[in-house]
Simulated scan of single mutants.
Amino acid sequence: MCATTRNLVAVLCALACVAGFQQQYFRIVPRSLRVHEGSEAVLECAVANLAGQVQWAKDGFALGFSSVIPGYPRYTMIGDRRHGVYNLRIVNSTLEDEAEYQCQVGPAQMHKVIRANASLTVIGKCVYLRIVNSTLGDEAEYQCQVGPAQMHKVIRANASLTVICKCVYLRIVNSTLEDEAEYQCQVSVLTLG
């Protein structure tokens, strides 16, 4: 009789545990960001009921579970692990950082794998803005040209990249003193797929 009672208690405890069990889930889902070249980007990720290990991936390449990411000296995983916060911080953003990122939480015990995506867009700086010709009352033409450092992107195995390089012009016809202003040109990587 005593063994039967113990088995019944064990079954009831197991059922109570399963009934109260909650899967790990994203408390804060990563959101896509647009940042200016040279600035800091922080992709947020917070997990509730965390049981598995957390890592970030960039364009499908896993960055690892450590807060210091080997091979990516400008990347760190920051946050409060006790509260399930695993943000990816990228300092001094460059056009090479523009990618699809994924916060990945691995399986553990009865917890399933969960993943959430966010893209990072880096708005590049204009290398120079050159006045082609300008006379008051005449036509003013400005040229924005990007340098070679901004026109390349890391190419992974079995991938191809087509670069369409184009100078961007701003033309002001019949310029007046009212046209005097600060003009800005922004560059972004275009991925053809």
Rank of each mutant, 00 (worst) to 15 (best):
A3V: 11
T5R: 12
N7K: 14
A10Y: 06
L12V: 10
A14W: 12
L15A: 03
A16Y: 13
C17W: 05
V18F: 07
A19S: 03
G20A: 15
Q23A: 06
L33V: 04
H36R: 15
E37F: 01
G38D: 12
A46M: 14
L50P: 00
A51C: 14
W56D: 01
A62Y: 13
F65H: 09
F65N: 01
S66T: 13
S67F: 08
I69Q: 10
Y75S: 04
R82S: 07
H83N: 10
V85P: 00
Y86L: 06
L88M: 03
A99D: 02
G106W: 02
P107T: 15
Q109W: 12
V113N: 10
I114N: 03
A116G: 02
G124H: 00
K125E: 09
C126V: 12
R130F: 08
R130S: 07
I131K: 10
I131A: 09
S134P: 00
T135Y: 03
L136D: 01
L136Q: 10
Q145M: 03
Q145I: 06
P148C: 06
A149S: 13
M151L: 15
I155E: 13
R156P: 05
A159D: 11
I164K: 13
C165A: 14
C167I: 09
V168A: 15
L170A: 04
I172F: 00
I172W: 00
S175E: 08
S175M: 09
A181I: 03
Q184C: 10
C185D: 07
C185M: 09
C185F: 13
T191Q: 07
